[in-house]
Structures are given as structure tokens and as C-alpha cells.
Amino acid sequence: MDLVTPELEEVYNRLTGSETTIQCTFETSSHLLYRAIRLIHRSEEHRLRYFLDGSAKTYFIGTVLEEDRSTPVEVSQVGATILQRQNDGRIRVTKMRREILLTLNKSQLSDHLWNSLDNVIQRLEGFTLRDTATKSHNGEKIGSTDTRPRGAHRANWYLRNELQIPLAHAVSRDHKDWLVLDGSLGTEYETWEGAPLLGIAKNFRHDFRFELGKGPRVQQLNLFNLLKDLRENQRTSVFPRDREGKIVFWYVRLRPNKGLDYPLMGVVKVEMPNPDCNPVDSELVDQISGCILAEKSVAPYGRNRYWHAHLYPLYLAERVVQTQFHSEEVLKSGVRWPFQVSR
């Protein structure tokens, strides 16, 4: 049953506004669909030094009734961290943020109640109140009409936009020290001007079509066709995610097909901001891919179902955040609903 429904990461990847049909490659040397890459160990060049990931855990705790209106009340624990890998391969936490998010549908509450709630929340350090009815989150884009999942989508939106992006800016990095984010890059990275970064998606949309070449020699491929011939230690050509190429992407096979259950296993999708919209330097992409290839050791095998495409430092970042979360018991015991017994 594992692959019956798409993961949320894959669904969000579809919402990045990208074209489903890719008609060109977008790098300086664009003759080859697959390019061999050489593994670059950190002892040779330690380019990927910072790793950013976050996690959001949402709990439905009840429903607010006000006259004939109601809204679900959800509490989310949201956190993000940046880890730095040192030259000897050890990892340490550089920055971390953790918050508790209370989400309700503002339109279902009176202004008086919402403002009162907002006043209370503002006085509590580490707590934030957000409206689930706002259009600026993925729940709206997915078209979720059910009110309860909207709180979780709102929390994920908050995590990506209000925790991860400020964190990515907060760490001062040299331009040769790259930051790696877990998952595909949102449209907000299209204009990224800070130190370089990458998004590595272990779980990505499968509905791409590639129409490469021109005239009668045009080559038509779907994603499965493209990746089935991608060998270990190879990357694909670089493709533009949108018409202008503000974000480019390519695929790298980390692990050989042998021993894996499914052709797409062991492949990561790499996304990179390209604000000047020029074809990217193939040599640079080769080097980045070589550095990513080195990340296959060590693997979080047995700890994550996507271990075959998961970068261990990103897995650690997620673990760091999740171990900082309060347990469900603690969170529930912290919620006290005052009530009056009728006499």
C-alpha cells in the first residue's frame, strides 16, 4: 500500500508552478542526456556544509463553537534547524527554531474572540496564532475542502516560509559553502540572492514529460523512461523548472538499481535557484552532483522509508527537530479547557 497515494512532498512538488512538459535542457554543455560524474569526497572538496530541514506535527484538539459557527482548533509543533558538517564529518547544530502554532478558521469566529485569542497568544513566547482560511498555503492550492487537514497544510506552509527561509538567511556562509534543503524549492527561492543553496527532493512528481531535440529527431520521454537508463554515478541533463529557468533541476542516481525494489529508488531530484536565468555551467553541476554522490554514505537504512534517496545529514536535521518536540502526552496535558459545571 506504500505507493498507492502520493506523499505530501510529491504533492507540494507539483504546486511549484513548474511546466509538466520540458522542452529543452538548460546547461552550457547540453549534448548528453546522461553525464558520468565523479564522486567528490569532503576531504577533496567540502562544498556541501550546511543542511536545513524542518518538521511539523499537527494535532486536532477540538472545535470552537460560537453561535452557529464552528472551526476546528489544531495545535502544531513546528521546528527547523540548520546543521553544519565539520571537516572531519561530524555534525553540529548551528541554528534551530521551534514554535507552537495554533490554527483556527478566522472567518468562523467573531473579531472579538479572535482578537482576544491573539492578545493571549502574543504574550506567550514561542506560540503563534494563524488563520487556516488564508489563501497563502498549500491546502488552498490542493483544493482541500475538508477543514481539518487545512491546519496541517497551514503548519507546513508556516514551516517552509516563516521558519526555514529566515533560517536560511540567518546563517552567514561563505559563497563556497553550500546549503542543502530537504525537498523541492518553493517559488520563493526563484529570486534567491544569498549564498548558494540546493533543494534535494527524495520524493518528487512523476508526471513530467520531456520533449528534447527538434524536428524529426525529437526525443519524447516520460520520467520513468528518463530514469530507467540513468546509471549509478550519472546525472541527467539540467532542465528548467519554468519557462525562464529561474529554478533548474536535474536527477542524480545515488545507488545502483540492484538491491532496490523500484526503478526510481536511489535517485534524487536536485533543484537550484538560477536567478539570472542563463543556462547553468555544466562543470559546476558535475561538481555539485559529485558532492551529492558522496552523500550516499552513510544511509539512514531502516530509519526512513526513503532511505535510498535520503541524505543522512538531512535525516539528522529532521531527527534533531523531532526530538525537541514535546511528547503527545505533554502537549495534551498542557491543554486545559476551563468549563463551568451547571448548578
Binding site: G89, I91, R255, G259, E295, K296, S297
Partner: peptide
């Protein structure tokens, strides 16, 4: 088995893991 797989299914013996 996790350690075996981490070393590229037992084929990486010379290099240190990228991350400890």
C-alpha cells in the same frame, strides 16, 4: 545491514563516510 548498505552495499572500503 544498515552499515553494510551505507557502504554502497559493501563495496566502499577505502573512503571514510561523508558524514559520520
Amino acid at each position: 545491514l544498515a552499515n553494510f548498505i551505507s557502504n554502497n552495499f559493501g563495496e566502499t572500503l577505502d573512503e571514510e563516510p561523508q558524514t559520520q
